[in-house]
């Protein structure tokens, strides 16, 4: 089996390889020597399982995520579908901003993206899938013949929960990631939230109330240096 190192992400190394003749992406969560061995084993197993489970749940809910081809808990490897021509939403947003001179055109393009992203997150939450690490680095834009697909990746921190608290925190993590990474486009989150509300199911008001509560905890925290 040929193996080619692609990059080192936040949690593991990514290789290009193949599984049963099909080219695929291999994500290896190597042993982190800084962690206590017990803690490391526990976290690694938990995250590999979470990632595999979430991919199946997304499939069932009609949400695009990489197909998991094979899980190997002994070598800490996950074999999954590879999108060779995709770029991250972070790159996509930054390129859209630098390439287009018309501020209105930029906003229009980003509005389309945000509506789609927000809608998918709403659908995820309606199916009780909590992503756990919503950033623009974890959303892929995969070009198709005329348009593009929005694909969510990195479900290692994900879990299954109906709790409004978990959904609220998920939204809070997203908001903070957008504000820090795309500070010049402060409108992104509001656009996503509007689309989210249409898709997130019957708990809409409860989740939004919880989200405000999580935000308020953050504000209280800024008091002490």
């Amino acid at each position: 089996m040929s193996v080619e190192i692609l990059k080192q992400g936040a949690e593991g190394r990514l290789y290009l390889g193949e599984f049963k003749g099909e080219p695929c992406l291999i994500k290896e969560r190597f042993v982190k020597k800084y962690r206590h061995p017990d803690l490391d084993t526990q976290i690694t197993r938990q995250r590999i399982k979470a990632e595999a489970k979430a991919a199946n749940r997304c499939q069932a809910a009609g949400i695009l995520a990489p197909r998991i081809l094979h899980t190997d808990l002994n070598t800490h490897k996950l074999y999954m579908e590879y999108f060779g021509s995709a770029k991250t939403a972070k790159q996509f947003i930054q390129e859209t901003v630098t390439e287009s001179a018309e501020p209105e055109a930029v906003k229009q393009q980003l509005q389309i993206l945000c509506t789609r992203v927000g809608g998918i997150i709403g659908k995820m939450h309606a199916n009780n899938i909590i992503h756990g690490d919503l950033t623009t680095s974890n959303i892929l834009i995969n070009p198709t013949a005329e348009d593009y697909d929005v694909i969510f990746i990195d479900f290692g921190l994900s879990h299954y929960s109906q709790a409004t608290e978990d959904k609220g925190v998920d939204l809070y993590v997203l908001e903070r990631a957008l504000l820090s990474t795309h500070s010049e486009q402060p409108y992104l989150f509001d656009l996503m939230l509007a689309a989210y509300r249409k898709e997130c199911g019957k708990d809409e008001d409860a989740v939004l109330a919880k989200f405000e509560e999580v935000r308020a905890r953050g504000r209280k925290r800024t008091m002490i240096g």
Binding site: D38, Q42, G132, D133, V169, D170, V173, A177
Partner: peptide, 13 residues
């Protein structure tokens, strides 16, 4: 002796 404790990471938080 390592005592198991909750481990709470939410994205970068």
């Amino acid at each position: 002796t390592y005592v198991k404790l909750p481990y709470v990471v939410k994205g970068m938080d």
